[in-house]
Amino acid sequence: MNGAQDLGGMMGFGPIGIEVNEPVFHAPWEARALAVTLAIGFLGRWSIDEARHARESLPPPVYLTSSYYEIWLRGLEKLMVRHGLATVAEFETGVPDPAAPALPADLKPAPDAPQAAAILARGASARREGGGHPARFRAGDRVKVRDINTLAHTRAPRYVRGRVGTIERLHGDFVLPDAAAARRGEDPQPCYAVRFAARDLWGETAHPNDCVHADLWDDYLEPA
């Protein structure tokens, strides 16, 4: 989606706000926002890709003027309503509404603390080794990024679309975010680090010795 999340190459945001001795959380509510978002995610009702799309489909003025954890919470509320875990009215009160639809029948029990620790330590790799079709490209191949414009989720940033780069390395087969976010299965396929000369992205003002790598899936690419 060509949303406000796709920031690469935009201008005018000003200097980087470097903070000395930055705390992990700037307010107690940020810690709770992180924890609630992760813990409800543990129920497995949506993928990380669907969660990302919930955030990136916020209207650009909202996205750009919200703090990071505020974006997370707005995304979480959307997902909870979509998946029948809460109603908008319940967010106002913080109390379950007896008139709200019942929770999904196949909902897993909430993990307790030891289970949550195990989930964090295990992670959830998106690698699906051997799950994809054979890689179409090899290291050194020249590729062009397809000009993907969709309201749905994609991880091909605007600044590389239509640009030619070189396959740097094959990472292996990974879940295709576009498919997972749209609940079309995982469609695992080869994912590559693609190297772009900075001048091929930004023109002559770029430094001749610079390059940018993006990790891109097979479906995003065509031979150049």
């Binding site: 690469g8 790799s125 998106a126 690698r127 991880r155 091909a156 940033p157 990472h171 990974f174 879940v175 975010p177 994912c191 680090a193 430094h207 010795n209 610079d210 390059c211 940018v212 790598h213 993006a214 990790d215 891109l216 899936w217």
Partner: peptide
């Protein structure tokens, strides 16, 4: 200078 944009997992 090599920039790596973490666009995947």
């Amino acid at each position: 200078v090599r920039v790596w944009d973490s666009t995947a997992e």
